[in-house]
């Protein structure tokens, strides 16, 4: 399992301003077989993440990862830092003295877990495991979305219009009427949409349309 995770490029980031804590946590997490990157300053960590993202290929998705965060840090609090992260990088919070408000706030904002220092290894590694699973799911989802979006981008504007109306449940002739064309043309467009979107049935097309809907299926020029 250890070697596998290292090879998979699963990374656990540790951000804590206290050097002794940072080292100890890094060791503990490393002993469980994860690749660890530790940062003493929240902004330094953010800069690093941003740099990695921009260096990556435009359509590539990040590897699963998570961050173990101290809540109290001099430059940027853990909660503030969390706002800058997306769901592929869930945070496990560690705090010396967390109160209920702080915990609720962090969890509502999408924290994977909220643990108090000193933390037992089992608790920490369990939380990291869950955070990584969440990250993997988010990465997977993002991956799919990218794939679907790239398929969508292959559609012509006309095909896109046809798809939009079809997934709304319109019949071919209704589509033809709305677009001011004939049913036969609509049929041909529809067949190409099914082919380009790599789906076999209308139901499947609707599901795909739903998935892509969040970022917006609104007609945009297929550049």
């Amino acid at each position: 399992m250890n070697a596998a995770q290292c090879e998979l490029g699963v990374t656990v980031y540790v951000v804590d301003d206290e050097e002794c804590v940072r080292r100890a946590l890094s060791r503990l997490i490393h002993s469980a077989g994860y690749r660890v990157e530790a940062y003493g300053l929240a902004r330094e960590f953010l800069a690093q993440v941003a740099a990695q993202r921009s260096a990556a290929l435009p359509h590539s998705v990040p590897e699963p990862a998570c961050v173990v965060l101290d809540v109290q840090m001099p430059d940027l609090s853990g909660l503030e830092l969390q706002r800058e992260l997306d769901e592929t990088l869930p945070a496990v919070f560690l705090t010396g003295h967390g109160d209920i408000a702080m915990t609720v706030g962090a969890l509502k904002a999408g924290a994977a877990d909220f643990l108090t220092k000193p933390v037992r290894d089992a608790d920490l590694l369990h939380a990291i495991g869950q955070a990584l699973a969440r990250s993997a799911a988010a990465v997977q989802q993002q991956h799919e979305l990218r794939e679907l979006q790239s398929r969508l981008e292959r559609l012509t504007p006309r095909e896109r219009e046809v798809m939009q109306l079809v997934v709304l449940g319109r019949l071919n002739k209704q589509v033809a009427c709305e677009l001011g064309t004939v049913e036969k043309t609509v049929k041909a467009h529809r067949a190409r949409v099914m082919q380009k979107m790599e789906v076999g049935s209308l139901a499947e097309l609707v599901r795909v349309a739903d998935k892509v809907a969040q970022p917006g299926l609104s007609p945009k020029p297929a550049s």
Binding site: V21, R27, G96, K117, P118, R120
Partner: peptide, 13 residues
């Protein structure tokens, strides 16, 4: 708490 955290994590590591 900070050194105690470090000690516990170090020992478990």
């Amino acid at each position: 708490n900070q050194p105690l955290t470090a000690i516990l994590s170090n020992v478990q590591a």
